[in-house]
């Protein structure tokens, strides 16, 4: 690790030295060019531009091209026009199912998660000595939630002889239902897992709450507003920009959910947890159906683009911006 970091470091110093040399009057032309903001801007963002072209743009365009082909990775791609896209909607019940499942998951788990995050944030906004500790405890699940360790744990908790049933047994609810095996409950185990990770959204809300001037509440109290009125009239409107940010990020994350379904439910039972990203992976890397998988990827991109633009458009109506200095 240190070995790799050193050339990087000396490279930085080289730039500084080189740059200082150029500062000499002799090189005034270079100096002017290099120091014009047009150049310096591009110099700084150059790494990203390169990465963007190589690792994003070229692959995206290749995905688009491949989505019009039949491609099994071994023989060269064969152009088939829109066939993949047509097949998605006319002759692939699993694709439709995966869309439904993903939409259900996203539209249930994201609002639930944000509601929880907001509620707990409100609870924790009362300062006490223990606040940092509470904050940490509530945050930890969201830090580990995506890991394999948690996925494996979840599987154990919700199995028919798992901890959840054992605990229910204690309060004399006797059941040996396999929460993961039951088509009706399986998706909920994943939703619970998502909601359990409300920590980072909570932190953002917490910070937002702290920024609301106390004077607003004082004024409202004097006017005789009760707790609920204060919440709905002051807190919520002022938090809308943060809700907006959280919503966009969580929606996209929701659509990309893979590991949890891959490990915990394997897409089952009855494909009831066959998330879009999981089905895409199966199509590409299990059935050698790369063209189709690429078509699915592009369709996913379109869905996310539409959703985000809808949210952005709608934000004019519900996101409240205080007058900003910028």
């Amino acid at each position: 690790m240190t070995r790799k970091s050193q050339p990087k470091k000396s490279w930085l110093f080289l730039i500084i030295n080189w740059e200082e040399k150029l500062m000499n009057e002799k090189y005034s032309f270079f100096k002017r060019v290099l120091n014009s903001e047009n150049t310096s801007g591009y110099v700084f963002i150059l790494p990203w531009i390169l990465g963007f072209l190589i690792f994003t743009i070229i692959p995206i365009l290749s995905t688009l091209f491949l989505s019009f082909t039949k491609y099994d990775l071994l023989t060269s791609p064969r152009f088939i026009g829109f066939e993949n896209y047509i097949r998605m909607f006319t002759n692939d019940p699993k694709f439709i199912k995966s869309l439904k499942v993903t939409f259900f998951y996203v539209f249930v788990s994201v609002p639930l998660k944000l509601t929880f995050a907001l509620m707990i944030a409100l609870l924790l906004s009362y300062n006490s000595k223990l606040s940092p500790l509470y904050r940490a405890i509530y945050y930890i699940p969201s830090m580990m939630g995506g890991s394999v360790a948690i996925a494996v744990l979840w599987k154990r908790l919700f199995s028919s002889d798992g901890t959840i049933n054992a605990l229910l047994n204690l309060v004399s609810i006797h059941t040996d239902i396999s929460w993961i095996g039951n088509p009706k409950t399986a998706i909920w185990t994943l939703i619970i897992l998502a909601v359990w990770q409300f920590g980072s959204s909570m932190l953002i809300f917490l910070a937002g709450l702290k920024q609301i001037p106390v004077s607003y509440y004082e004024a409202a109290s004097i006017d005789g507003a009760n707790v609920f009125q204060r919440f709905f009239r002051i807190t919520l409107p002022l938090l809308t920009p943060i809700i907006f940010f959280n919503l966009v990020m969580q929606l996209i994350n929701g659509f990309m959910t893979f590991t949890q379904a891959f490990i915990i439910t394997e897409g089952g039972p009855l494909n009831n947890t066959l998330f879009y990203a999981l089905y895409l992976y199966q199509r590409g890397f299990q059935f050698f159906d790369m063209g189709y998988a690429c078509a699915m990827a592009w369709f996913m991109l379109i869905i996310i683009a539409i959703l985000t633009s809808l949210i952005f458009k709608s934000s004019n109506f519900w996101v409240y911006y205080e007058s900003k200095e910028e």
């Binding site: 095996g181 915990i264 394997e266």
Partner: peptide, 9 residues
């Protein structure tokens, strides 16, 4: 057994 027992390998 109910098939849900086998939903997960």
């Amino acid at each position: 057994p109910h098939p849900s027992e086998y939903a997960v390998t």
